[in-house]
Nucleic acid binder design. Structure first.
Length: 801
RNA sequence: GGGCGCGUAGCUCAGCGGGAGAGCGCCCGCUUCACACGCGGGAGGUCGCUGGUUCGAUCCCAGCCGCGCCCACCA
């Protein structure tokens, strides 16, 4: 074995070998229990970021463990077409050439996206390979594959036939750049400094008027009422009267509505149902019309009001302010900081507009999903996220499934001139109602998450009844970040229950979000991103996997390179330990312990394995990984190897060491697959690749504490410089091999340990002298304290003689 | 405004009712032939603040203070 371990030359070699030898491959095998993870499909135009790397490391660790445990494992890879995101990326490219998608037209633009994807898309799978993710790459799927499109169409038709899809005018979040509606979940809210303008609306009859406060002056052209709280004494008499909207001179009613906050502004609200969600609701309940004065592109529309057609909103605002000043109706204007919605993809300010959209009713879909969540048939980890998933599903509003963009799954809806809808998976020849062949397809595309919802089974061939589906559905686990629980997790759950009649998985791991060292969110645009490939190049994939998993303890975690450095240390340490054991020549692997330390390390391996298995079962990756670190460093290397080093020439000692190393490698493999496989090939007894070797049976742990007494003895010696007396032969030997060098150096602070013991004795005596402690504390605790006291006294005697 | 979470050694984090821990960093000593990518030792914490429960609280409860993320129609 090479003295120096170079992950960059070893790791890619194994990644290639495993894949070429078909060890990642999952094929239906009725003789074995299956274990399936449909890995979250990244954006096809995406790049590997830390979140992916973490997510992959966690899932791959579970996957590799399961594979070794004999399960028929499917780890499903693929991409998402990612609607707006991808369209955006391509449009940016176009913009660089001074073109827009309108210049090309829809068909040419979509063709360009495909072309662009062939060139720039799909890079991320290479990066997935580089981190060692054991996905079945033969099965790569894309949410726009021909077969996948059929699944999506089937889903839509299914929902339509159930009567759950409908069309309705709603106020939507409109992105004036993308010219599409966005769901609430595609927004980003930011604080903005605006002006709050106080405008007088004079009464139509008589003196005076009502002053309203607004942050969006131009929309007053679309006002249809002024609303006040019904109990607001200031305006009690105004309800039922009419006021005149400035500029346009229109008479509108004053209405009472409880949704008006009397504390805000003047307590009077201008009602603009066409441009504000709250106003829309109020308008609906009061039977008011919905007028619009802002166009889809964000500019003013004069067709209704007769004013400012084509002006920007800022220009219109200036015009209106001038008019108000002139007529003495501008009461006040103050600076105002509030949160405003922006498109989370292009950062344009959202326009609330009324638009005709397609919706999917959640009423029936969410019932079985909620039942599954409540009963725990599907469980989110940690528990707090389970509660969040339940709450967000319970309150889930109807799903706006249409988007007015070009890249995506076009709705399978055709309309005839008589406005009949024909919904079908394939293009119909004629209108289902009137038989005309003059059909026009709906131009909207589906929300990206509509297709994502099918990921766990569309990738297996649904709606066909495939062998893959029977073998790998339902799956087992999904790993994701908590920001897409509502977008994706909940939807996969109800889609799976509805279409497959079963859950897509029973466990959902909500992993940590890794923040930049500066504390904030990691994001490329903020310049706080971190490239995992750079880390892999610097430290190796094994170390990076280790480090990321070590960091993944609580819900938000600050990135620390030290954790990865620690992983690197562990890799190197393991490598050198293997060199020591295997360096003396070939030997068989057999557990033939003949001494205390040998029995001890075998017991420790079993004990540690149980801890590891328990940690993984709870998806506690951070502790799992730390257990492995201490097992390897402290116990295996610092104690066991140091103790047996002088006797490694003996056949039985070496055979046992090789056997112990084998078990250690198996436990480490799921976390650091490459270095362990590399060492494994040097073992004399290997019968197959480590990646498919069988997971060990945890054995007897009873000897795990056997060396503790020796460790204590050594500690006492090192600190006091005094050799304890009365060691048995076994301990004396271990003491001589491990602790002796210290004595020869004459290191240690003589008497320090004795002082420490005297302190301990005083503390224990003090506790036992406390009557309330002795009488009220649990008896076993008191007894334990007595035993400690006795032990400290014995240790002190051993030192001082 | 609501939800979730976090404040423990210089840094990143464990521990969560009975003796303050790890890794990194720092200091001291070691080129002992697996590993200086190493070994051994050490310094360094009123466990955010204030109350409460308890014989006992870093740990449980309440209230503050600070920080992060997610969500939200106060115009």
């Amino acid at each position: 074995m090479e003295p120096l371990y170079d992950p960059n030359s070893v790791e890619p070699r194994w990644q290639q070998t495993w894949e070429e030898e078909g060890l990642y491959a999952a094929d239906p095998d009725p003789s074995r229990e299956s274990f399936a993870i449909a890995h979250p499909p990244p954006n096809v135009t995406g790049d590997l970021h830390l979140g992916h790397a973490l997510q992959l490391s966690l899932a791959d660790t579970i996957v590799r463990t399961r594979r070794m445990q004999g399960y028929n494992v499917l780890f499903q890879p693929g991409y998402d077409h990612a609607g707006i995101s991808t369209q955006n990326a391509v449009e940016k490219h176009l913009a660089a050439e001074g073109k827009s998608r309108e210049d090309l037209g829809r068909e040419a633009f979509v063709a360009l996206v495909w072309e662009w994807l062939r060139e720039y898309g799909g890079k991320i799978m290479f990066q997935f390979r580089r981190i060692g993710a054991s996905l079945d790459y033969r099965r790569e799927r894309f949410t726009m594959d021909e077969a996948y499109v059929r699944s999506v169409m089937r889903f839509f038709v299914h929902l339509w036939n159930k009567g759950w899809i409908y069309r309705a005018n709603r106020i939507v979040n409109w992105c004036p750049f993308h010219l599409t509606s966005l769901s609430d979940l595609e927004l980003e809210h930011r604080e903005v400094d605006d002006a709050l303008t106080f405008v007088l609306y004079p009464f139509a009859e008589g003196e005076g008027g009502i002053t309203i406060a607004t942050a969006r002056v131009p929309t007053l052209l679309a006002d249809v009422a002024v609303a006040v709280h019904p109990d607001d004494a200031r305006y009690k008499d105004a309800i039922g009267r009419e006021v005149i909207v400035p500029v346009i001179g229109k008479r509108v009613p004053v209405i009472g509505d409880e949704r008006v906050d009397p504390e805000f502004g003047t307590g009077a609200l201008k009602v603009t149902p066409g441009h504000d969600p709250l106003d829309f609701e109020i308008g609906q309940d009061h039977g008011l019309p919905e007028l619009m004065v802002v166009r889809a592109d964000g500019r003013m529309d004069g067709s209704v009001s007769g004013f400012y057609d084509g002006l920007t909103q800022d220009e219109a605002e200036q015009e209106i302010l001038a008019w108000l000043r002139e007529h003495d109706q501008l009461v006040n204007r103050e600076s105002y900081r509030h949160t405003v919605a922006f498109c989370d993809r292009c950062k344009s300010r959202i326009e609330p507009l009324i638009s005709l959209q397609w919706w999917c009713s959640m009423e029936e879909l969410k019932k079985p999903a909620l039942e599954a969540l409540h009963s725990g048939r599907v469980r989110f980890h940690p528990e707090s996220q389970h509660r969040f998933a339940v709450a967000s599903l319970e309150s889930a509003p109807d799903w706006n499934i249409s988007r007015q963009i070009w890249w995506g799954h076009q709705l399978p809806v055709w309309q005839c001139p008589s406005r009949h809808f024909t919904v079908a998976e394939e293009e119909p020849a004629a209108c289902r109602e009137c038989g005309t062949t003059a059909l026009v397809r709906e131009t909207d595309v589906l929300d990206t998450w509509f297709s994502s919802a099918l990921w766990p089974f569309a990738t297996l061939g649904w709606p066909e009844d495939t062998e893959d589906l029977r073998a790998f559905y339902p799956g087992d686990l999904n790993t994701t970040a908590r920001d897409i629980i509502r977008l994706w997790e909940n939807r996969m759950i109800f889609a799976g229950l509805e279409l497959m009649g079963d859950l897509p998985f029973h466990d959902v791991v909500i992993h940590s979000l890794v923040h930049a060292p500066s504390g904030g969110r990691m994001s490329k645009s903020l310049g706080t991103g971190m490239n995992p490939l750079a880390l892999i190049e610097k430290y190796g994939a094994d170390a990076t996997r280790y480090g990321l998993m070590k960091m993944a303890s609580s819900q938000d975690v600050t990135f620390s390179e030290g954790a990865i450095e620690e992983g690197r240390k562990l890799v190197i340490k393991l490598w050198n330990a293997a060199r020591l054991i295997l360096g003396a020549g070939v030997a068989e692997a057999a557990e033939r312990p003949s001494s205390l330390e040998e029995r001890w390390i075998l017991a420790r391996l079993s004990q540690s394995q149980r801890v590891l298995e328990a940690n993984l079962a709870e998806f506690d990756f951070s502790h799992a990984v730390q257990e492995l670190y201490h097992l390897t460093f402290d116990d295996f290397c610092d104690w066991y190897l140091e103790a047996i080093k002088p006797r490694l020439g003996e056949a039985d000692v070496k055979a046992t060491a090789v056997a112990a190393l084998e078990r250690l490698l198996k436990l480490l493999h799921p976390v650091m697959p490459h270095v362990t496989e590399e060492i494994w090939t040097a073992l004399p007894s290997r019968a197959c690749r480590l990646i498919v070797a069988s997971w060990p049976e945890a054995g007897d742990e009873t000897e795990a504490g056997a060396l503790d007494a020796v460790k204590d003895v050594r500690r006492i010696f090192v600190r006091s410089g005094v050799l304890p007396r009365g060691l048995d032969e076994e301990r004396q030997r271990i003491f001589d091999t491990v602790a002796k060098p210290e004595r020869q150096r004459g290191n240690g602070d003589a008497g320090a340990e004795a002082r420490r013991l005297r302190d301990e004795i005083a503390r224990a005596e003090g506790m036992l002298a406390n009557e309330r402690f002795v009488s009220k504390a649990p008896p076993e605790l008191v007894e334990a304290e007595r035993e400690k006291l006795a032990r400290y006294r014995r240790e002190l005697d051993a030192i001082t003689g």
